[in-house]
Write a protein that binds this DNA or RNA. Structure first.
Length: 646
RNA sequence: GCCGACGUAGCUCAGCUGGUAGAGCACUUCACUCGUAAUGAAGGGGUCCGCGGUUCGAGUCCGCGCGUCGGCUCCA
């Protein structure tokens, strides 16, 4: 008899009869494994348990404990969801339903007039559980394209028809698509590449989470579908733990902490524009100070430019053509004017104010530039997406030869700043977008220059094709917020176009005119977004140097007011942000309030301390560390703050 | 901008099927003068997001608008 031979992860070989499946292999190894098995992995590909093994390839049996196993049952759960929805909503059209990072979704087009909201989740989940408890098998069949098309057409499943047609059309010429795979679970059959677990009962816990609109094929010109998000796990405990983690993540949401710690607020009177309260402004100012010091150290010179301009400026810069929709305009004595959405045209005016020599280059202007962008209403998000944006901007005017060093300098500056906060940003290189200005040769050169700079530092990065600015490619630094969403912070953008449009030039050593190149860079991105990320990163427990209130003096009784006042004064004289809690409350109460405000240091003054010029030091989260001379404590904190210790 | 949900005191939230609003915290006052996460008592505080409509009567039902939240698209 012929055999298939496969190698197991521990190096042993397994021989099975010809045509044996993954399930057979699992059973041959052990009954427990056979029960736990979900799928197999061979040569990097995850396949159904029921499919014949590929002879000669290493074999790994996937069980709930295997990395990536959740993805399988989440995909299963998406199919179960679709099955339930099709039963409950006759006439619904299905599109796609993949597993995603923490769960799965399925996109549907409901019949006209039918809406689904989270109020419907209970009965959909109920129906899903029926299918799960019925332990329905996932059955794969491979059918010819024509047959599949006929089948989905007959059912009026237009999206499936389009998917198959596109599969055929987009196929590699050498490997035309002749057949597609269908998976059936219970009453439901879906076009699907697989793989799936053997049956629905492998899903031990499932929960629908939210409903959202999503455009078909991600195209806002096309039909908007209803997306139902859910998640699934191998146990109810795992699900409960996951929900608990989400809850904890919400506790560090900067919008919540911003209100609780009185850092900033928002008002309906100016959507997307933060109002900074004193505590938030303290953080802003520290960041600002850091930014100034480091810019100066690196040869930047700070400038300040207007926010309101004649629209002619934006016609020349190209913003009028490409960005008008997102700008704010007004008429001033019948003269059309607009708020700048970017600082570059302003800095260009500074550059043009004089004849420039190659000896002047690079010219580095920095500015905390206030720009306004009319971000669509649905996209605003606390400090992370605002309309009133203070960029930590800079523009470098340099010669083409200087590009690499300047870009490397920007990146190193960025990493210096991020290191200070313990951030590990993700790098992306974004290349030419469809809507752009400038010739292809220019884009070729610009993209190559950025790649060189990244390679020069051996930095790893992702390519984000087509996501560059309309005037040039860029390198972006991305960070993740408390619930895993990615936000762009820093950016370094190369621009050959703007100097062209504004006819910038400098005199070279050859006494001829040359065109400078512009580098746009923001490292924090914007103060707003960066502080939002900072709040979530520290969960509001800022290091001493950033803390809005660095130390609070807590007198035990009224008679300690004078001594406490002296400590407050000493702290303030040392340059620290300090407060005195002289309410007629118990120390316990004062400590509790200070802890909740996440004040790093609480300095308690009672009889013992008042007498000897001491304070009892209590550090946030750490606790009482005993009495010390007030002057020593003040000096120590001042030193620690100046050093920006983490 | 699009889809769905939500909008009640400064904050967090209750308010059943329509009958002119409640709690806790915060705030004010008084008493207490306190040793490391809440002292006690009393009191003040609401255009129930806005505008229309239905109704004898709307926080509650309907429409429109604004804002917020979760996504989608977008993010120079």
């Amino acid at each position: 008899m012929r055999c298939v031979k496969v190698t197991l992860p521990d190096g042993t070989d397994l021989e099975l009869p010809d045509g044996a499946s993954g399930a057979d292999a699992a059973a041959a190894i052990g009954a427990g494994l056979a029960r736990a098995a979900l799928a197999v992995r061979q040569n990097g590909e995850v396949r159904d348990l029921a499919r014949p093994l590929v002879p000669g390839e290493p074999l790994e049996i996937i069980t709930p404990k295997t990395d990536g196993a959740l993805e399988i049952i989440r995909h299963d759960a998406a199919h179960v969801l679709a099955a339930a929805v099709m039963e409950l909503y006759p006439g619904v059209k299905i599109s796609i339903g993949p597993p995603i990072e923490n769960g799965f979704y399925y996109d549907f087009e409901f019949p006209p007039g039918v809406t689904v909201s989270d109020a419907d989740f209970a009965r959909i989940e109920q129906k899903m559980r029926e299918h799960i408890n019925a332990d329905e098998r996932f059955v794969r069949e491979d059918v010819m394209v024509d047959e599949a098309l006929q089948r989905f057409r007959a059912e009026g499943q237009d999206y499936k028809v389009e998917l198959i047609e596109d599969l055929v059309r987009d196929a590699d010429r050498d490997h035309p698509v002749e057949a597609v795979s269908l998976y059936t679970n219970g009453p439901f059959t879906d076009l699907c590449r697989g793989p799936h677990a053997p049956s629905t009962k492998r899903i031990k816990a499932v929960k629908l989470q939210s409903v959202a609109g999503a455009y078909w094929r991600g195209d806002s010109e096309r039909q908007q579908l209803t997306r139902i998000y859910g998640t699934a796990f191998f146990s109810k405990d795992d699900l409960a733990q996951h929900l608990e983690r989400l809850e904890q993540a919400r506790a560090r949401d900067h919008r919540k902490l911003g209100r609780e710690l009185e850092l900033f607020m928002f008002s309906e009177l100016s959507p997307g524009s933060p109002f900074w309260q004193p505590a938030g402004m303290a953080i802003w100012n520290e960041l600002s100070k850091l930014w100034r010091e480091e810019n100066r150290r690196r040869g930047y010179r700070e400038v300040k430019t207007p926010i309101l301009y004649d629209v002619d400026l934006f016609k020349q810069s190209g913003h009028w053509d490409t960005y008008r929709e997102n700008m704010y305009f007004t008429d001033v004595e019948d003269r059309p004017m607009g708020l700048k959405p970017m600082n570059c045209p302003a800095h260009i005016q500074l550059f043009k104010d004089d004849r420039r020599s190659y000896r002047d280059l690079p010219i580095r202007y920095s500015e905390q530039g206030l720009v306004h962008r009319h971000e669509p209403s649905g996209t605003l998000h606390g400090l992370l997406r605002v309309r009133h944006i203070t960029q930590d901007d800079a523009h470098i005017f340099c010669s083409e030869e200087q590009i690499r060093d300047e870009v490397v300098g920007c990146l190193e500056f960025g990493f210096f700043l991020y290191d200070l906060f313990g951030f590990e940003p993700r790098l992306e290189l974004s290349t030419r977008p469809a809507k752009r200005i400038g010739s292809d040769e220019i884009w070729d050169r610009a993209e190559a220059a950025l790649r060189d700079a990244l390679d020069a530092r051996a930095l790893s990065y992702e390519i984000n094709a087509g996501d560059g600015a309309f005037y040039g490619p860029k390198i972006d630094l991305h960070m993740t917020d408390s619930i895993g969403r990615s936000w762009q912070l820093g950016t370094v953008q190369l621009d050959y176009s703007m100097p062209e449009r504004f006819d910038l030039h400098y005199t070279g050593a050859d006494d001829a005119d040359h065109r400078p190149v512009m580098i746009h860079r923001a490292l924090l991105g914007s103060f707003e977004r960066f502080i939002g990320i900072l709040v979530e990163h520290y969960a509001g427990e800022f290091p001493l140097w950033l803390a809005p209130v660095q130390a609070i003096v807590l007198p035990i009784a009224d008679r300690h007011a004078e001594a406490a006042g002296g400590v407050l004064e000493a702290l303030r004289d040392a340059g620290l942000r300090a407060e005195l809690d002289d309410r007629t409350e118990s120390v316990g109460r004062k400590i509790r309030d200070a802890e909740l405000r996440k004040v790093p240091y609480m300095l308690v003054v009672g009889d013992r301390e008042a007498e000897s010029g001491a304070v009892a030091v209590r550090e946030h989260r750490i606790g009482d560390s005993g009495s010390e001379a007030a002057s020593d404590v003040v000096a120590r904190l001042a030193e620690k703050s100046v050093r920006r210790e983490r």
